[in-house]
Nucleic acid binder design. Structure first.
Lengths: 149, 149
DNA sequence: TGGTAACTGAAAGTGATTTTCACTTGGGTC
DNA sequence: GACCCAAGTGAAAATCACTTTCAGTTACCA
């Protein structure tokens, strides 16, 4: 039996959900799988379509509900792109940020605890005491650079 | 004749719009004014309501169109809050970031060219060459701290 | 094996945004 | 100052993005 990377990730996710008291159902598996296989942020509609490839009668509402749940437990992350926040990527729990390729949209996470690294004297300049932040980077991924795009 | 700060800002904005070939109309002035007077991010509906205080028959569609135009020229900025990107604040053109108070939502800009200051070796770690970023901070403003909130 | 609370899909409801179109107007021209 | 017309406008309708409701189904614990 061959285990793909996606299968291993799904296994881990399902264990995590079960551990948190969530049921692992066929519709949820379909959404999880679509998320795990994607290499770029996907809209709810796209996830619905891809999820249906695995579970034909997957309902759109279930996709919304599953994403909400996955976001809550840190397994999915909402991405800001094109003036809206309607796309999702798979995520690992914990504090991290994302970087998205401006050509192919492939999105990666990187650990962010050491990022900010905020401008010196920000509190003095603005009067605000910083308690949180939200950072998204844009760049060009290795393969798009290699293909000269 | 007394010039308030808001009046001065509006004057500058109107000059900028005219310079770019946009017409300065009563509906646009109403939206600009509502934006300039706000101390926190406002939704489209709120801007519509406030704009009507100055120009009674301001249409909702015009608010959308004006915001789109202002965002394009850098005079308004969309703010991400509560899982959506539906609020706007006045903005100064150029590269800067925002910080929003988690209590009163008052939002300030700060210059961001010196921010990132990204984690060393990000390109090596992720394979991405960074070309841009989007950063929003959350904190507590001076007056909310003073009031012990 | 049940039993049951969690989960589901369809349909209807809501709210945000865009499109369309006939009408109005800012601002340059004479 | 009157005229012109492309840019701008508001209302209504259409579209899109969710959310709620509800009757039926199912994962999983005892």
């Amino acid at each position: 039996m061959i285990f793909t990377w996606v299968a291993i990730v799904l296994q881990a996710w399902e264990g995590k959900l079960r551990g948190l008291g969530y049921r692992v159902t066929a519709p949820r598996r379909a959404v999880l799988r679509a998320l795990a296989r994607a290499h770029r942020p996907l809209s709810v509609a796209e996830l619905h379509k891809r999820g249906r490839a695995q579970y034909a009668c997957l309902g759109l509402v279930t996709v919304y509900r599953t994403l909400q749940m996955l976001e809550r437990v840190g397994l999915a992350r909402r991405i800001h792109a094109g003036g809206a926040c309607r796309s999702f990527v798979a995520s690992t729990p914990g504090h991290s940020h994302t970087i998205t390729c401006e050509h192919c949209e492939k999105t990666a996470e990187f650990d962010g605890d050491d990022v900010c690294l905020l401008p010196a004297g920000l509190e003095e300049r603005t009067g605000y005491r910083v308690s949180g932040h939200w950072l998204q980077l844009v760049g060009v991924c290795r393969s798009c650079r290699a293909s000269g795009d």
